[in-house]
Design a binder for these strands. Structure first.
Lengths: 331, 331
DNA sequence: GAAAAAACTGTAAACGATTACAATCCAAGT
DNA sequence: ACTTGGATTGTAATCGTTTACAGTTTTTTC
């Protein structure tokens, strides 16, 4: 292994000078710079980042905790994060929890052990106090999710208003008997969307039939199964609002499997605007989240925290958008 | 920041002992262990991993270079990698290249600078010699892709035989005039699948019409556009083999847009078996790759390299599978 | 040309753990 | 009681950089 001392020896300078050539070239003569660079070249020297990190007490690494990397929505957020991270000279350490709360907790340690300079959480199902505890001493930002009553910086859309908007869109189309399929209710995000649904109904003086509100888990299968459950119960709604696109697709498949048509017989509305949602038949009317931008913003927020710059805005709310396609129509 | 010396002081032992309690508890008395643990507890001490890493010259981190994390196939491979990585006490550093060859090269440095103990590449479009150079001094394994004539350990399916098998399936169904849409031809993987297609045709004494072989880039749009090109050229094939599912969907959309039906008028075959492929209408007949297992195997191979264990098998070929659904039928 | 200022370079102490080696302790064997 | 040897523990070197501070050289100024 060739180290800085080897370079220093070969170039006939001190290790300090070598280090300076690498980190603050303007502080050293052109002549010495050249000598040093030659030596580096000749020896094919690569500084050991670990040593630098230890000395500087920073890792230039951030940890991203994702509930499921396989979910295209999250991977898009992740990409936004990664893009600005590398632009700022940071690397991304990946923490996929597989939707497992225990693993989620485990990743908190990585921060405390100084293996990363900061963390962005795309999931916050674990003990809120544990997160807050860590956030007190280390840079942490939440993306997509948030923790109620916490002051941890957050970037997300306004799930409540988005769901309300979508619900009211269905109501405008003349639907009154609307079914709703939630995400897992241990996440605030799911609860917020549900809240938005209730608000939309209430504002228009419509009653929500409790049997038409069912808890799913964001998977295609749960959408399919819950729709089948609606069929089994008799009493169909005229429209279904599924709290993500994947479940919406399951719902539609279930409807088709009964020989009915979407949107002619039942309208279906999704949430996320996956790439595939426009390809699906019928193409999905859905709420689009700016996934990539959420990632970018989260990372920028984190950079501010890490650099102890003033954080102007602690809660960034990005705009969502209702994308109207074919899966909903007036009654 | 509370360090090991603080703990040592409070427990009235040396730093060496504290370290031992943490790393080899069996080498220290029960009584002292307890004292130390108490002190650790009281001070809420977390060892600084950087320091340990520097001393041990290992990072317990591996780098995964992915062409596009947003692609569900790659994210599934990644998940397989991550799962065995964390099981073995390693973390995953993510390198998304955005299909950009320059960025790909950049990630090689991370290894050389010792920020990771090893690397798995899910893409190998860059200069083969550069990769080999790095692989000589550091643990590297390739997954999905491979480098021709190189001895870098690899895990993938046999793309040639898989594509040949798929082609022959179409031929069995009676198709003779078959179109093929390749992936980007700067990747071996794409060239292999193309080779398999040619082989399948040749074995059955069928001529390949050169205009029916077009280069795509694995995106939905390229599938759509190339199919439209086939229409524009007149002279339609009776079946299209697209070298991934996303393009196959584009192809099908294009066919439908012309008022034709799949598979009644034209059969379409894909490759990858994405989650959505079974939901798509018609559901796709396709080649299934064991994405998760590829990831697992790659990581296990890498572990062997890192631990300098003997690597029994340098090239692991996993089984692919033709999944027959609705998008192809006999002529 | 000497003094002062500026620019550059070198010495050595960090960073915070691990671990080779030395020192000590303690029980068992004589 | 006195070795002996194994089990614990402590001392201090070490990993490979960065950087405060000191020392040296060069440039500027009068």
């Amino acid at each position: 292994m060739v180290g800085i001392v080897d370079v220093a020896k070969r170039a006939n300078v001190s290790t300090a000078t070598v280090s300076r050539v690498l980190t603050r070239p303007e502080s050293v003569t052109e002549k010495t710079t050249e000598k040093v660079l030659n030596a580096i070249e000749a020896l094919n020297y690569q500084p050991n980042i670990l040593a630098r990190q230890l000395r500087r007490l920073e890792t230039k690494t951030i940890l991203v905790v994702v509930p499921d990397i396989t979910n295209p929505f999250f991977s898009k957020v992740l990409r936004g994060i990664e893009a600005v991270a590398v632009a700022k000279g940071y690397q991304v350490l990946l923490g996929d929890t597989g939707n497992n709360v225990e693993q989620e907790k485990g990743y908190l340690n990585i921060l405390q052990q100084k293996k990363a300079d900061g963390m962005v959480l795309l999931t916050a199902r674990m003990d809120a106090t544990a997160v807050e505890e860590v956030a007190r001493s280390f840079p942490v930002v939440l993306a997509c999710e948030y923790i109620e009553g916490s002051s941890i910086p957050t970037v997300s859309i306004d799930n409540i208003s988005a769901a309300r908007k979508a619900t009211e869109y269905l109501i405008e189309l003349g639907h009154e008997r609307i079914g709703y399929i939630t995400g897992p209710l241990d996440s605030v995000l799911s609860r917020d969307r549900l809240k938005g649904f209730y608000q939309g109904m209430a504002r228009n003086n419509l009653k929500v039939d409790p049997v038409l509100v069912q808890e799913g888990d964001f998977t295609y299968d749960s959408g399919f199964n819950l729709m089948m459950k609606f069929f089994a119960l008799g009493q169909l709604p005229t429209a279904i609002f599924a709290s993500n696109d994947e479940m919406a697709m399951g719902v539609i498949k279930a409807i088709k499997s009964k020989g009915l048509k979407v949107p002619e017989d039942i309208s279906v509305l999704g949430f996320d605007n996956l790439k595939f949602s426009s390809v699906f038949e019928p193409s999905l009317t859905t709420i689009a989240q700016p996934a990539y931008e959420i990632g970018e913003n989260a990372m920028e927020l984190l950079m501010n925290l890490i650099n102890k710059e003033e954080v102007k805005q602690e809660q960034i709310i990005l705009a969502d958008k209702l994308v109207v396609r074919e899966s909903c129509r007036n009654i």
